[in-house]
Amino acid sequence: MAPSATPAAAKSTDDLGLDLTGKEDLLDRTTFEQILEMDDDDEDREFSKGLVHGFFEQAESTFDKMEDAIAARDLHEISQLGHFLKGSSATLGLTKVKDACEKIQHFGAQKDESGTVDEPDETKSLANIKKTLTEVKDAYKEVAKVLSSFYQDTESS
């Protein structure tokens, strides 16, 4: 058994059964481990599994709403949806998803990706949103695959 003094960042990727090899930027291990600590049963992990599966449903629904808002050119709605999904993904430690959602939030507010510089061109903001939405969906698929494997899900997410 590994010594308890081992820092979380130095742990191997298999101490929890998470395979993050080459994908360390997908998940903040410390945050995710805090969620896992709330499980009553380490084997079933019903609490954390429920949170993760709820997030999967929420993310897919939010992506659909973002697509609709893009089609309607509703930047305000896109910004709100980005903010919403940013919070949910941050709670689980889904770093790459959170970061991309934050960019979408900023682009929807007609700012640059950092949220500090105004972008008055609505068409440019929408183009940035479309590009970033593709990126966030890819990041979501990657982390969903890792977490589905962790929870040994038989059904596809």
Rank of each mutant, 00 (worst) to 15 (best):
P3W: 05
S4P: 01
K11I: 08
K11A: 15
S12T: 14
T13H: 12
D14L: 13
D14Q: 14
L16I: 08
L16N: 13
G22P: 09
K23H: 13
L27D: 09
D28S: 09
D28Q: 12
T30Y: 11
D39K: 09
D41C: 09
E43S: 13
E43I: 12
E46S: 10
F47T: 04
F47C: 04
F47G: 03
K49P: 07
G50H: 06
G50A: 07
H53C: 08
F56I: 10
Q58Y: 08
Q58G: 06
A59T: 06
A59K: 05
E60I: 06
S61R: 13
T62Y: 01
F63M: 12
F63W: 14
K65H: 08
E67S: 08
E67Y: 04
E67R: 15
E67T: 11
A71I: 01
R73G: 02
D74V: 07
L75R: 05
L75T: 03
H76P: 00
E77I: 01
Q80T: 02
G82P: 03
G82K: 02
G82D: 03
G82F: 02
K86E: 09
G87T: 02
T91P: 00
K98Q: 15
E102S: 09
E102A: 11
K103D: 07
H106K: 02
H106S: 01
H106V: 00
F107T: 00
G108W: 01
G108N: 03
G108T: 02
Q110V: 00
D112E: 03
S114K: 12
G115I: 01
G115L: 03
T116H: 03
V117T: 11
V117F: 00
V117K: 07
P120C: 06
D121L: 07
K124L: 12
S125V: 04
S125I: 03
L126W: 05
L126P: 05
A127Q: 11
A127H: 03
A127F: 00
K130A: 12
K131P: 00
V136S: 08
A139G: 08
V143L: 10
V146N: 13
L147E: 14
S149N: 13
S149I: 02
Q152F: 09
T154F: 09
E155D: 15
S156Q: 15
